[in-house]
Nucleic acid binder design. Structure first.
Lengths: 130, 130, 130, 130
DNA sequence: GTGGTCTAGACCACT
DNA sequence: GTGGTCTAGACCACC
């Protein structure tokens, strides 16, 4: 796992959302810790060959959520409560998981197959953490 | 559970995608069986207060996927292989489930909590089936 | 090869065109000879479970082309010049074959592969003739 | 050979299909290469005096097939695998060629005449390529 | 600027 | 009546 940002222009996901996701992923993975400085809007926009507006939008949204904070003239930094904020965001996705799983069931996908995937995912996640 | 169509204008999901999802859900739930006729483009567009084009687009996509077939001048009908097609569509979503679960793990959501949701979802789905 | 009519409701081809094609094919195959009587509009529409209008339309078009002729009150019969007419219809499709073949070439399909198909098709056709 | 788009309003082929065919033809002819940008939906609709929806529909279908990819807000571009995709589409038409040839045979068109057309078509295609 | 979606309403071929 | 296509024109998100 590396901590350099990447964007997939061909993805149907908006570019600014891809940036948000990656910042949050780096935080969850411990690659970015509270107080750490994020790349500046300008440098990241150059690195990723993006319009600065796009990067700015991602940072603004992250700040709105309380994941980072910005000190004008100094830069953007990971908030103390970042992990907490991200976790509660993810938790809000659980009801949708429930709906998805009901559809898998209706589609005839065996419960055991899902349970296996859960186990693999949790194993894989713990390994990446190390 | 009823089999009348509903659309949510607030949703960020495209209306035509909502129609597709509902048709597929009705089929999985057994409310629409192979050979059954779907509401005509016109009648559904009136019922949902939509433009015929929007309904037409949903039906075209369902036909392209092999979920329904259309006889010009007669109507649209559930394909014999509809369930099969939908199941394989769903199965293609499993890798994304894997990614989502890894994120839940990284976000500190306990595996047991996920397993509970899986169990609930499969119970709920089986009940709706009856 | 049999000479009973069949229609494919799910085909994208119009039903009346399917009838036309089959009549012409039977004539080319020698299953229908000049002077032979075609099934009546009514009986064919019942046999194929079609609206009589649809069958009528096919017969009218065949008459217009000179493939069959109709004697009111007696029925429809294969015209003496039927084969000739159908052949010249087919011959008019040759320029389109030319275009199709150019596209196959551009798509990287080898000429030899096409030549093989031509040979097979002519062999198969001669066999069915017997 | 030029690479400007043209539509034939008289044709019974749908306009959006004509656009699809032309884009694919330009790609096969090497006039459009992977990564090349297609005219924007708006500009092409103006150039051809069509409604933007019609062009949009063609582009959507091309994207679904994997011939082009689209970056919302930036434009549509020829996919790396475009030729591959188009070739396999064409190859799927071969069985229909077989049927057509059988009919030509039954219609009394000499095999030699067909072979000549194949040769001409392959010659013509190679020349256009240069 | 770009594509994505939708409404409104029309015409056509076919059953 | 049914679906298939198209025009005209609008609004949105994103770059």
């Amino acid at each position: 796992m590396n901590n350099t940002y990447q964007i997939d222009n061909q993805s149907r996901k908006a570019v600014y959302e891809q940036i948000i996701e990656q910042v949050e992923r780096f935080i969850l993975a411990g690659l970015l810790k509270p107080g750490d400085q994020l790349p500046s809007v300008r440098s990241l926009s150059i690195e990723l060959n993006l319009n600065p507006n796009t990067v700015q939008r991602a940072y603004s949204e992250l700040e709105r959520r309380g994941v980072i904070y910005t000190i004008t003239g100094k830069g953007s930094f990971v908030d103390e409560k970042a992990r907490e904020v991200i976790s509660s965001e993810k938790r809000r996705e659980l009801p949708q998981l429930f709906e998805t799983l009901k559809e898998f069931s209706a589609a005839g996908i065996e419960k055991q197959e899902i349970l296996d995937i859960v186990n693999y995912a949790y194993m894989a996640s713990k390994e990446e953490q190390d």
